[in-house]
Design a protein around this nucleic acid. Structure first.
Lengths: 237, 237
DNA sequence: CGTCTCTTTGAGTTAATTCAATGCTCGTGG
DNA sequence: CCACGAGCATTGAATTAACTCAAAGAGACG
């Protein structure tokens, strides 16, 4: 499963902290600092698989840099992206013996892998750790709910606007700011339950309406964040 | 919030167990037996609201009988049903200070309401309780993933077949068995991200194809469970 | 600098929707 | 007990949002 790992090295607590401080790596979520010491860093090239749905769930991961897509593949090749994980975020924290989805690197990705047994042991011993894990799961539930509403009840324009708005919000961007768009159009389509052509058309429409700009394929400029939010909420255009 | 509660009474541990034994009420999930003692029984009439999205999340609920729908309402009235909860199942177990969805009684419902503070205290004290809660959340994640794939990437026939197949599976039904269908066609539509007309048409098609029967509005007879599963998985019709 | 992949745009098709009409159930009251 | 009315379900017809298919354009990369 980890054939694509370019290097894997066990690092000391101090080494990770030093690296984080040196390179501006994202901080561990509050309450999970105790995990730092048990992680191993692994790098994945764009498009490679981190783990596959159904694999024994041996590890929990945290993204250090790059973006990861979590997806479900159907027998006939259809794909639904469940969520993306960006720098600082965790995935594979569920209490299940097999992974519920496949995790793939969108771009160049470095993760820290924590042995699940360790995570569970720390959870048992340290109340703040389990509290944080539980909170994290609850947060992810909220995200899934929003996603489900988007896919189940919103039209293409609303979905694309909602996706971009969420991206901008996460990056704390306001009008004029450029937001990184690491994933492909196909990834966006598979996240939103649309086709790549529909995503392209809606992006073009947003661009023509001066709501966003697309300086290059992998970034967007937020021109009218309020309008973007209105569209995402389904207000008449 | 609990205006619709017809009666609410605090019951002793023994009383609940006795009632469960007497009337065939569903057993508590393994590991959560310790909760039994802190519950209060509440009844809700069909269509009434148990709690509303955004309310302070004071309680965790377990369904004793009847069915509950968990839904998200959009400003313009569009609705997405996130999940249903049937006898024996819990809802409102997330570690969030506000409910993430609205819970409504589909039919005549009796729930046991557990004070969240109590649940959290028990979780802190008893490893098996928190383990069970965590497992439960993980299970619910799996269900949401399946749901998301269904809504995002399956066509109307696959969604309706998938819904019925899941219902039959839950009831452990095989060919010839009748399965209870407590929710309305509109509820099914709002769960599947379809319109009520499309749901009706697909049900009619399944009936004409001898895959199911509909003796009355609120039950279906499973005639060809294998075919139902094939359709749900997206195999050519 | 050619090739390969990804993106964009256009044209035509279709699955699902909307709108409309009818049928069925069930509860209520005469 | 039956008739009536309200609400839910079903079916049909017309419309449309999103899809498929096709071709051209733009980047990335050896």
């Amino acid at each position: 499963m980890h054939m694509q790992a370019i290097r894997e090295m066990r690092v000391s607590n101090g080494a990770i902290h030093a690296a984080a401080a040196a390179s501006g790596l994202p901080a561990m979520p509050a309450g999970l600092a105790a995990l730092e010491s048990v992680g191993a860093r692994v790098r994945f090239a764009p498009g490679t698989t981190i783990f596959t749905e159904g694999d024994a769930a041996a590890k929990t991961y945290r993204v250090l840099c790059g973006s990861v897509r979590l997806c479900k593949h159907m027998a006939d090749g259809r794909r639904q992206i469940v969520d993306f994980r960006h720098a600082g975020e965790l995935f594979g924290i569920m209490q299940l013996d097999r992974y519920a989805f496949t995790a793939e690197a969108v771009d160049d990705v470095v993760v820290v892998a924590y042995a699940r047994a360790q995570v569970e042991r720390l959870g048992e011993q340290i109340p703040s750790v389990r509290r944080s894990l539980f909170d994290l799961l609850s947060e992810q539930f909220l995200a899934m709910h929003r996603h489900l509403v988007m896919v189940g009840r919103q039209n293409a324009k609303e979905r694309v606007a909602g996706f971009l708005f969420a991206l901008a919000e996460r990056a704390d961007a306001s009008d004029g700011d450029t937001v990184d768009l690491p994933m492909s159009r196909q990834d966006i389509a598979d996240y939103l339950g649309l086709t790549i052509e529909t995503v392209c058309r809606e992006l073009s429409a947003l661009k023509k309406a001066q709501i966003i700009g697309t300086p290059d394929l992998h970034s967007i400029v937020v021109r009218d964040n309020d309008r973007l939010e209105q569209l995402a909420l389904g207000e008449p255009s």
